[in-house]
Amino acid sequence: MSQPSAIHLERTTLQTARITFANPPVNLMVPEAVVRLHEIVCGFDEDPDIQVVVFSSEVPDFFINHFDGAAAGDLPVPQHEDDPPVWTDMVMRLSKASYVSIAAIRGRTRGAGNELALACDLRYASREKAIFGQPEVGIGIVPGGGGAERLPRSIGRDRALEAILSSVDYDADVAERWGWVTRALPDAELDAFVDATVARLASFDRQALTTAKSMVNRATLPPDADLIASYSGFVDSLTNPGFLARAVALGTLIADKGLDVEYHLGEYVGLANQTS
Rank of each mutant, 00 (worst) to 15 (best):
A72K: 09
A72I: 13
A72R: 07
G73I: 05
G73F: 03
G73T: 10
G73L: 01
D74T: 08
D74H: 08
D74K: 10
D74P: 06
D74W: 06
L75V: 13
L75S: 09
L75Y: 14
P76L: 14
P76R: 10
P76V: 03
P76S: 07
P76C: 08
P76I: 11
V77P: 08
V77N: 12
V77I: 14
V77G: 11
V77Y: 12
P78K: 00
P78Y: 12
P78E: 06
P78V: 07
P78H: 11
Q79I: 12
Q79P: 07
Q79L: 15
Q79F: 10
H80Q: 13
H80Y: 14
H80V: 04
H80I: 03
H80N: 15
H80G: 11
E81P: 08
E81Q: 05
E81V: 04
E81K: 01
E81R: 04
D82G: 09
D83H: 10
D83L: 03
P84G: 10
P84N: 10
P84V: 04
P84Q: 12
P84T: 03
P85L: 04
V86N: 10
V86L: 13
V86C: 08
V86G: 05
V86F: 09
V86T: 12
V86D: 11
V86W: 10
V86S: 09
W87K: 00
W87Q: 01
T88V: 06
T88A: 02
T88I: 04
T88L: 01
T88S: 11
T88G: 03
T88E: 06
T88P: 03
D89Y: 11
D89V: 05
D89G: 05
D89S: 13
M90Y: 09
M90C: 05
M90F: 02
M90Q: 01
M90I: 01
V91D: 09
V91T: 11
M92F: 06
M92G: 09
M92W: 08
R93Q: 08
R93M: 07
R93E: 03
R93C: 07
R93G: 02
L94C: 09
L94Q: 12
L94S: 05
L94R: 04
S95R: 14
S95V: 10
S95F: 10
S95Y: 10
K96I: 13
K96D: 15
K96E: 15
K96A: 15
K96Q: 15
K96G: 15
K96W: 15
A97H: 01
A97E: 02
A97P: 09
A97R: 01
A97Y: 04
S98R: 05
S98I: 05
S98P: 06
S98W: 08
Y99L: 09
Y99S: 07
Y99N: 04
Y99G: 00
V100F: 14
V100G: 07
V100R: 06
S101Y: 01
S101W: 01
S101I: 00
S101R: 00
S101F: 04
I102Y: 02
I102V: 02
I102M: 02
I102T: 00
I102G: 05
A104M: 13
A104W: 13
I105C: 15
I105G: 02
I105T: 06
I105L: 12
I105F: 14
I105Q: 10
